[in-house]
Simulated scan of single mutants.
Amino acid sequence: MRVDLFDFELPPERIALRPADPRDAARLLLLDGARTEDRTVRDLPALLRQGDCLVFNDTRVIPAQLEGRRGEARIGATLHKREGPRAWRAFVRNAKRLRDGDRIDFGEGVEAQAGERGADGSWQLTFAGDEPVELLLERAGRMPLPPYIAARRAADAADAADYQTMFAREAGAVAAPTAALHFTPALMAALAEAGIGHETLTLHVGAGTFLPVKAEDTADHAMHAEWGRIDAATAERLNQVRARGGRVIAVGTTSLRTIESAAGADGRIAAWEGDTAIFITPGYTFRGIDGLLTNFHLPRSTLFMLVSALMRLDRMKAAYAYAIENGYRFYSYGDASLLLP
Rank of each mutant, 00 (worst) to 15 (best):
R70S: 13
A150H: 02
A157T: 14
F286M: 07
V174M: 13
G206N: 08
A219V: 01
D4F: 01
D7W: 00
G71I: 08
T200S: 14
T178N: 05
T209H: 02
L211R: 14
L10M: 14
R97N: 15
L125C: 03
R242W: 10
R14A: 14
Q113T: 15
Y331C: 05
P299T: 05
N239V: 11
E216P: 00
A186Q: 14
F330W: 07
R49D: 15
L191P: 12
P147D: 02
T302Q: 00
M316K: 07
M305S: 04
A336R: 03
E216D: 14
L125A: 08
T202G: 08
P185G: 10
L339D: 05
H224M: 08
P85H: 11
E199T: 03
G129A: 10
R49Y: 04
A114V: 09
R117K: 14
F6P: 03
L211E: 14
A262N: 13
A207F: 03
A112L: 07
R97T: 12
S337L: 02
A179N: 04
G195Y: 12
G291F: 02
P45Q: 07
A151N: 14
Y163L: 05
H297I: 00
I15N: 08
L293G: 04
P341H: 04
L30D: 12
R18G: 06
E134D: 15
G264D: 11
D100F: 12
L31P: 07
G33F: 06
G252A: 10
D159P: 09
V205M: 00
A263S: 13
D105A: 06
A207V: 05
R27Q: 09
H224L: 05
V307K: 02
H198D: 10
R247K: 07
A186L: 09
V55Y: 10
E138Y: 09
L292K: 03
D32W: 07
A318N: 12
S255Q: 05
D217H: 04
K214F: 00
G288Q: 01
T165Y: 10
L5C: 09
L31H: 04
T209Q: 00
Y284R: 01
T40K: 09
W123N: 09
A151S: 15
W227T: 03
M1L: 07
F330A: 02
A46H: 13
L28K: 12
G68A: 11
